[in-house]
């Protein structure tokens, strides 16, 4: 049977990066349990537009959990109370009738609020630009299976590569640390032969950029891993530490 709920939303509203923000309360009635969280916000925005008010700004794109664009800190959890999903995959059936739902933007000094629930995650792109790539010379395309890679290694690289760069790790971390993100991006390349030649330089450059952008120091609380919508493991953080220390000690 379809579940229909009435909810109260407490949403963060902020006109711009420098403006002072605050919470706004809205009541929504007759929300179907099959509605996704973002569709629920669409309903709210439609209501606001009809009332002649400004709609709530929030990031979203693919709405199928693979682009990493949606964010939202819902009731104490990045991407809401359900595990291993992004906000767009969260459905209203996870809430009870009469619930008050608090919706906040990611909070971290390195992720300033742009407007309402949207934050500037450009810092992640800067970290990638610092070394999250493999340099390839132009020319003929090599055969995909020319370099044999053991299955467990390929699997681990793939697990690291499942990071969508949404920033939930930073949002969940009490230290505002980006270690899970950076470690996933370092690991996906460091594990594979193609990434090895630049491994040392990559680890050093990406950590340097991460520190420079004002992300915090990891204290191994595991909050990132527990909130990651893709289940990226902190074993990647251990690998990043290893890669970085080996690179620095071999200098």
């Amino acid at each position: 049977m379809e579940k229909i709920i009435n909810i109260t939303l407490k949403v963060w509203r902020q006109k711009g990066p420098k403006e002072k923000g605050g919470f706004e309360t809205h009541k929504l009635e007759g929300i179907s349990g099959d509605t996704s969280f973002l569709e629920m916000l669409d309903i709210l925005n439609e209501k606001l537009v009809n009332e002649g008010k400004e709609p709530v700004a929030f990031d979203n794109d693919c709405r199928e959990g693979i682009c990493g664009m949606c964010s939202l800190y819902i009731n104490g959890h990045p991407h809401g109370p359900d595990n291993l999903i992004t906000t767009c995959q969260l459905h209203m059936r996870h809430f009870k009738d009469g619930d008050t739902i608090t919706v906040e933007p990611w909070r971290s000094a390195a992720f300033p609020v742009i407007r309402d629930l949207m934050v500037d995650r450009y810092a992640f792109d800067k970290i990638i630009q610092a070394g999250g790539y493999v340099s390839v010379n132009t020319g003929g395309i090599p055969d995909a299976n020319a370099i044999p890679i053991p299955k467990p290694v390929a699997d681990e690289a793939m697990d690291a590569a499942s990071c969508i760069g949404c920033g939930a790790c930073v949002a969940a971390c009490k230290n505002g640390s980006a270690m899970l993100f950076v470690s996933a991006k370092v690991s996906q390349l460091a594990l594979l032969p193609q990434g090895k030649p630049e491994a040392k330089q990559r680890a050093k450059a990406m950590v340097l950029k991460m520190d420079e952008l004002g992300f915090g120091n990891c204290t191994n609380t595991r909050a990132c891993e527990l909130e990651c919508p893709k289940g990226v493991s902190i074993s990647n953080i251990a690998r990043l530490n290893r890669e970085f220390l080996v690179a620095k000690f071999s200098d």
């Binding site: 407490k10 919470f23 800190y73 819902i74 009731n75 104490g76 959890h77 109370p81 608090t102 906040e104 909070r107 971290s108 000094a109 390195a110 969940a172 971390c173 009490k174 230290n175 505002g176 640390s177 004002g214 992300f215 915090g216 120091n217 204290t219 191994n220 609380t221 595991r222 909050a223 527990l226 909130e227």
Partner: peptide, 28 residues
Amino acid sequence: MLTLQNRKARGSDKYLSSNRTETEWSAK
């Protein structure tokens, strides 16, 4: 030093709905 840097990195805006991630108490 690390604690002060981490507080700065976290920023001055706190979450209203607190942090409900089930991490170990000692770790935090």
